[in-house]
Amino acid sequence: MVGLPDTQQDLLDRLREIDSDTAWETFLSIYKPAIFRFAKSRGLQDADASDVTQQVLIAVHNSILDWDNGREKGSFRGWLFRVTRNLAAKALRDKRKHQRPTELADVSLDIEQQDEGTSSALLLEYRRGLFQWAASVVKAQIEPRTWQAFWRTGIEGKRPAEVAHDLQMSVGAVYAAKCRVMARMKEVVGRLSDSDIPVDR
């Protein structure tokens, strides 16, 4: 597991280092798709969502040096979420200038743009990015057959007996593979998810 950041804080520290390309790559692989998908979920087109993603990443890149460790834990992510929300909102506003706001037919009481909703959407995307990154890390460390056993049973939900037959393993070995991969996933995800943001929605 050489080269993997141990914690969110460690990732931050590494990002600040002179040769931080590896840490930056890690950062990108988790956050870039998350930011992009979030921007898309707000109703932006691909091109606009890419722009927002780029702007957020530039903001991070420009600020990371000045980011101080003394801040309370997890607030970096809070800040990042705020930047993302604001930039996505700005892009959306820019876009909407060209179209008449449509009237909602069924609305009678106050509908306020609330942060809670966007936060949980962004948190969801962040978790997705984190899990997908963790999957790529774990997948690279194990045998393809083991990964297949995990993927087909754990993710695709196929019956272990069927998978065991396809992969020419015993059912017990399929269970072992599935659970060992999951245990590694849990470990990798766990390292980077220490924060003040609750894991559960």
Binding site: R37, R127, G154, G157
Partner: peptide, 17 residues
């Protein structure tokens, strides 16, 4: 959660949440 996040990941990177 793992299943939710990884399912479909191999198909496309742009799955709308």
């Amino acid at each position: 959660e793992t299943r939710d996040h990884l399912a479909g990941a191999s198909l496309t990177d742009k799955t709308a949440p």
